[in-house]
Each structure stands twice: as C-alpha cells, then as structure tokens.
Design a protein around this nucleic acid. Sequence first.
DNA 1: AGCCAGGCCCAAC
DNA 2: GTTGGGCATGGC
Length: 288
Amino acid sequence: MSKIILESINDFDLEQTFECGQCFRWEKESDGSYTGVANNKVINISSAGSNIIIENSSIEDFDGFWHDYFDLGTDYAQIKAKLVAQDEIIKDAIDKGYGIRILRQDIWETICSFIISANNNIPRIKGCIEKLCNLFGASLGTYKGKEYFGFPKPEVIANLTIDDLASVRVGYRARYLIDSAKMFVNKGEAFFRMLASDNVSYEEAFKEITALSGVGPKVANCILLFALQKRKAFPIDVWMKKVMHELYGFDEDDIIGMQDFAEEKFAESAGIAQQYLFYYVKTHLHIN
DNA sequence: AGCCAGGCCCAAC
DNA sequence: GTTGGGCATGGC
C-alpha cells in the first residue's frame, strides 16, 4: 500500500463533502484528514492546497475505484456556474459549500444507510451503521491500530432475524432492512446497478427503488442521488423544509411545490443544488 | 417529561 | 388518492 498524491484537484473540499449528510462512514482524524471504508477498502485522505493525498491505497485502486467514487470525472465548476446564475440564495449556499462533491456510493450500502436514516438523526445513523458493519461485515484488517469492517452483504442481512439486529439499535427499521435485503437478493445486484445507467430515467429508477421496504419518496431520492447518479433527485427532509421555508418562502408542508420549483429552477442539477442547501442549513443557517 | 431527528407503513377515509 | 396515527431509539 502506497501513498498517492493527486495534484491540482478543483472543487473538492473534504470536510464539506464528508459532512454534508450524504455518507456515514468517513471519520475525521485529529490531523484533519478523513479515514473511511468503501468497496471493502480502507483509506485515509487529506488535502494540502489543491493537492489530495490518499494513503493506504494503490494506483490500481485509485484508477479502478476511488477516481469514480469521488466523482473526479465531473466538472463541478461548470455545474456551479449554472446554479449560481439562478439567484442569490443558491449562490450564497455554494459559496459556503463550494467543495461538495456527490460521491458515487455503493447501491446496497446506500439503500441500507438511508432506510436507517428515516426519522433519525445523523450521529445515531452513523452509530447504527458502524454497529451493523462491526457485527455483520467482513474484517478488513487493521489500519493505524484500528480494525475496520466492510459493509455487510445483502445475503447476510437477508438471513438475519429481527432479534439478530437488536444490538444494532435500528428499532422498527430492522424489519425494513431484512425485507429489503431479501428483495435485493431476489432481483439481483446487477438489476439495481443497472438503474444507474443513463438509459434508465429518474422516474423509472424512482419506481423501482420505492418498491423496497422502508423506502418512501425521500429515502428513494437520496438513493437515486447518492448511488445511482440521478442528479434530478431532490430529497426533502425536515432540514430542507426549513431552508425552503426560510429562504424561498414555501409553506413548510408544500413538498410538491418545492419539488416542482427545484425541477424548474435547478433542472438536471437539482440534487447537487439540494446538497449545497442542505449543507448550508446545517452549518451556516442557525434556525430552530 | 416531552420534543426531535435526512419518514415510512398502513388503515381509514 | 390522500390523510394521519403509530412507531424504536437516544440526545437534549
């Protein structure tokens, strides 16, 4: 395992990317770097100026996985330029979260993570996912003295009972995880991966994903955005309701109005706009 | 004690 | 097709 240095990486801020609510397995270290697990691999990532440093990886892994995971093939400057032109509100949000990138996360892990996210808060979601991995994931060995685990395979979750999941503390969501795991195994991973194709529309993918247990419109939109590259997806949770109410004047329960507004205004980049707004309300807009 | 958190399910209309 | 009560858990 070697250290990789990527030079002149633009529009990529680690803290903004990892703390904007899209992922739950990246932990900030005391030196400001982040250590995380994806694709059954553990890496540590840090930045120095416009350089990105990846430790505990290899060129092969970077080219074969991490480059796409961090969405480094996408020109965020171009996306931001279009959004900024819309209004002062989104411009301000982008000023605060200029370095957010939408990670291309694993479909199964994202399904489970956002089933757990329903009616829950981010610290608890992270705790539940960590327990789930530690108990039912494969050991990936130790890195800097700590043992890491991969995300549990769908076949493993599909064969668990509600009692097996009790110590994960996901509450009533345990049933959804098991039921969705069975559906995922039945349809096959290839089917769900295929939904990321440009040939599959947002609407089509939405229909398939909401068929899963414990997956309603909000959770589905998160899955579509964070794992299936459907950038039209505009997830609206309680925080988005707050920001849409405070900044754009919507009635807090007017979900339809917010969705239509996002589609018309932010178009094919609605999901990315949503992440700038979500990060903005969580870190810079102290309402509540 | 009661409210809240990246909401969903399901029964009752 | 829409609406609303119920829901595990833990921090505040």
